[in-house]
Write a protein that binds this DNA or RNA. Structure first.
Lengths: 145, 145
DNA sequence: TTTTTTGCAAAAGGTTTGCAACACG
DNA sequence: CGTGTTGCAAACCTTTTGCAAAAAA
């Protein structure tokens, strides 16, 4: 695919990528764009579907997500589903997932930051703790009926 | 494989399985046994390897783990690795995982039970919360050098 | 005896990789 | 320009499934 230097070379996504030490390419900017359009956990496949018109390869989406994760732009979310879900790191929060239907509800605030420091003390073999993942599982009201 | 009613029909594993509403078969008892021999998060493949001498099919290990999880005997642990890790439910705890080398350290106590009630209140669409998963990610001392 | 579970083999699904062409810096 | 990234296709690996035989209750 031939690229022309376009709008994607400027703006917030460009800055985020460069800030993470990544080259700002059209596919990467597009992938990042999907997250800010729709801020919830997403899989590579879902992102690929939303970018069909951009003709970005699925493998490229996978590779983008991996490099985003390595540079801290996105985080992996553990929904106990078949695929890997990612979310932008800049609005950290937790989720509740229904074990029957898979419904995902987002929790408003992360209340464990206080506990975090205490936990950090109890860790023997680690130098830094850089992130955490806290998810709750249960049965949603619909499935409980 | 022909079975004979043997030792696996009695004892604690048998009770755990029946308590979970599951039939106590030789393969299931064996899988459960692996967990108590070595109490850390394990994948189907790892369990399969430890039971090679028992000639249990890998598919059976997968099916056992799935039914254990559904009946609450084991829980899925999220290590951000390629496969699904399981642990016995009866010693609930959290982990710290090194993002470089994959080292897993277990944390002693779960300190968020207090927050749990508060969290439960803030959840709109759920009737019950049955479990949670909290993992920390960072860089271990070895990798930090 | 009825129902569930197993073993086997094959399929499915998600993710990764090799390589040549291409684009970013 | 040089190096890192993309597209394409193929490979890979984990997990699931269909079915007939076997075991649990």
């Amino acid at each position: 695919m031939k690229y022309e230097r376009g709008d994607y070379m400027k703006g917030k996504f460009y800055d985020i990528l460069r800030g993470g030490g990544l080259k700002a390419t059209k596919p990467r900017v597009a992938v990042l764009g999907v997250f800010s359009d729709d801020c919830r956990p997403m899989t590579a496949e879902e992102i690929f579907q939303k970018l069909l018109h951009e003709k970005i390869d699925l493998a490229t989406v996978y590779r983008s997500l991996k490099s985003f994760e390595e540079s801290g732009i996105v985080e992996i979310v553990n929904l106990h589903k078949d695929s890997i879900y990612y979310e932008l790191s800049d609005h950290h929060h937790h989720h509740v997932i229904c074990k029957k239907c898979g419904l995902v509800e987002r929790l408003k605030e992360c209340d464990i930051d206080a506990s975090l420091k205490q936990i950090q003390k109890s860790v023997r073999n680690f130098k830094h703790i850089t992130s955490h993942s806290l998810e709750f599982f249960g049965i949603c009201k619909k499935c409980a009926d």
